[in-house]
Amino acid sequence: MNVPLKPVRAPNRPSRERPRATRLVIGAAVAWALLVALGQLLSGRWWLWLLPDLMPPPAFVAVPLVLSALACAVTRGRTRRWLLPALSVLLVAGAGRAGLHWGALLPGGGPGPAPAHALKVFSWNTLYWDTTDDPDAFHRHLRSKDADVYLLQEHLAWEDGKHKEIDRLARLRAEFPGYHLVARGELVTLSRHPVVAAPPVGPGRAPEGSASWRERFEWNKVLRTDVDVAGTVVSFYNVHVPVQLDIERSWFSPAFYGVVRDTDPVRKEHFAALLSDARANPHPLLISGDFNTTPAMGDLKGLREAFRDTLPASSSFLPGTWGVGGLPLWRLDWTFTDEDLRVHRYALASAAGLSDHKGQELVVSPAD
């Protein structure tokens, strides 16, 4: 009698793919943990860390979430039990550096209604003023904001790889009759209310009588304007902190890193001068502009501790003001106030194709 033979089963062999994938996820988690830890230690302290700090801040949330999903897919047993909690710690550690407005996800809790005497403020990096745009469209965009105070940066041009002086102030005065205008270096402030003082801040304290435009441009990165608002003096700080790198240079050239190294102390000097002046200022104040600094960078630590970020008055979960390819993943533009100035609205406005920075629109009023 023929007895059918049972098929011989191949011995079970452990999958090689899963251990390899597990090692990759663990390696990526360790590398990310090291990056986060070094950022906490070195950001704002070592000039070279300005470069890792350029990554999109939402990555501090996105990377742990992606690694957690991969860990669920490829890990098992003991490995998963310790890896997922570790990634959760990294997620919590990075949430504050991601620049996301978590309060926007909660219903209610917004700022109170603005009183009749509230001020409309518009702060914007214009990207070389109107030199790369239709001047009529540029000024129409400004007038459409109908702001009481305008804080404008980059009143200059970019020619032959260098910043060049321009003078568009006569056109600006004609477009905004009745406004008071203060200009210094590349910074321009317009106010419907009388300007009572414009004291220099930081390196801008150097005598300007015989200074060249290049020197005034480099000295004046903070323009303070004290404005009389119905008997209350409010100080507006118009800010443009120097960018930390030269994108015209190759990352493989020593000159590229030389620019980063030399710019770092200049940035710190302007930050320190701004913080010192604002802390000593007895008036209600608003600090706004392009800080060329993301939420992940330690450079803003002093300002964020001493003054209030206006973001809680916004409804935007991802408050990016600058981006690549139309995706605003970086918040480089900020506004801060003290406790004597209430913020009723904070919104990011489209630049209508006139700049690579979004504008900042605010409604504020002096506290009672």
Rank of each mutant, 00 (worst) to 15 (best):
M1K: 08
M1V: 12
L5E: 13
P7W: 09
R9Y: 04
N12V: 11
P14Q: 09
R16I: 14
R16H: 14
P19I: 02
A21F: 09
R23C: 12
V25F: 02
A28L: 15
A29E: 06
A33T: 13
A37K: 04
G39F: 03
G39K: 07
Q40W: 13
R45E: 15
W46C: 13
P52C: 05
V63R: 04
V66H: 00
S68E: 00
A69T: 03
C72V: 14
R76T: 13
T79N: 01
P85S: 05
A86F: 13
L87Y: 05
L87F: 04
A93K: 01
A93Q: 10
G94N: 01
G96K: 06
G96I: 08
G99K: 06
G103C: 04
G103E: 13
P107E: 09
G109Y: 08
G110N: 06
P111W: 08
A114Q: 02
P115N: 09
H117Y: 02
A118F: 03
F122W: 08
T126S: 14
D133Q: 15
D134F: 00
D136V: 15
A137D: 14
V149M: 05
Y150W: 01
Q153S: 11
Q153A: 10
Q153G: 10
L156A: 15
W158L: 12
E159A: 11
D160H: 12
K162R: 14
K164Q: 14
E165Q: 14
A174V: 00
E175H: 08
Y179P: 04
H180C: 04
H180Q: 15
V182F: 04
R184V: 05
G185F: 03
L190F: 07
G202F: 01
P203I: 06
P207F: 08
S210T: 12
S210D: 15
R214H: 13
E218T: 10
E218I: 02
R224K: 13
R224S: 11
V227I: 11
T232V: 14
S235D: 09
Y237N: 09
H240R: 09
Q244N: 14
L245Y: 15
F256A: 10
G258N: 01
G258A: 04
V260D: 03
V260K: 05
K268A: 11
E269I: 01
S276D: 10
A278S: 06
R279V: 14
N281R: 01
L285T: 00
L285C: 01
I287L: 10
S288R: 06
G289K: 10
D290H: 05
L300Q: 14
D309C: 11
P312H: 03
F317Q: 03
G325Y: 00
L329T: 03
L329W: 03
W330Q: 08
A349S: 12
S350Q: 02
H357N: 07
G359Y: 09
E361F: 07
V363H: 02
V364A: 00
